[in-house]
Amino acid sequence: MVTSNPPSSDVVLEVDNLVKHFPLTTGVVVKRQVGAVQAVDGVSLQLHKGETLGIVGESGSGKSTLAKLLMRLEEPSSGKTYFHGQNIYDLQGKALRELRRNIQIVFQDPYSSLNPRMTVGDIVGEPFDIHPEVVPRGQRRKQVQELLDVVGLNPEHINRYPHQFSGGQRQRIGIARGLALRPEIIICDEPVSALDVSVQAQVINLLEKLQDEFGLSYIFIAHDLSVVRHIADRVAVMYLGRIVEIGSEAQIYEKPTHPYTQALLSAVPVPDPSVRGQRQQIILSGDVPSPANPPSGCRFRTRCWKATDKCAQEDPELTVRPGSDHESACHYAAVREDVVIQH
């Protein structure tokens, strides 16, 4: 195997068969459960110290839900997540507070994730209220200003409110807040999708620098596959609540074996108008299935050009497949290179 599996002592987070189903109800007055959205359905993965695990995939495939489960902002329907060997869903009181200090999240939506009635200084400094031991009271303002400076915001704007900043500026506020407690793990849920490429480059450089400096581990969720490729050491591809392929950055981007990954890579728009319309793009036909009622067998089969009867009957396991050295959940996994991004 090419993927080095570092000794398990290196594992900071281990996710074991995590499941989250949201009840689906009808009726306005009397709610009746009619099913469940299978937002996350049996996800297992490991995160190593100092590494960046990229997560890409279908919109609605459960990436943000997974992130919230790892932060314990949602409770799982079943499954476990071990942080330094302890199942985080068993933690309470002080141990839970400690966990929340060590795992931070930077959210997808820079608009709704910031309280409009708090100043930027209060937002970035709020983690210190919950964890007063980190920075002495008298030092807080200075610390907050330093954090603003680190993420490229003007420290003088400490008394402004979120609505006075642009979308991209607000995203940096979220990152400053995420950094405040010097966590071990930062989960970034589309941290740069609201940023222009130049600021995006700054933020990515910043995240990489902080990682080198503090040995941080990142889970980096994003739709921009070029960005993920740049920052990630390993990449997991999600579809409808499950990981369908996982491997090193090079394995996923250069030797993708799952049809969904291949479709995804083929759809990446190329920043060069002279090749407009020339790239061969795999068009996925068929409707996106509902996560409340996923297809039998392989969940991707309703949109897959390779699907056979076997795919409808047997759920393909996420495992190393012949002819490749990383895990893929496709009965007919096969390396395909014509979809690889060239730029």
């Binding site: 490229g152 130049s198 480059a201 070029s226 981007y253 991004i341 730029h343």
Partner: peptide, 23 residues
């Protein structure tokens, strides 16, 4: 020009991205 140069490129993996400095 700075914007176009900030696009992450495959051949620059592992290197710092070019970014427009300052605010």
């Amino acid at each position: 020009k700075g914007l176009l140069e900030s696009i992450p490129r495959v051949d620059l993996k592992g290197q710092e991205l070019s970014a427009i400095k300052g605010l």
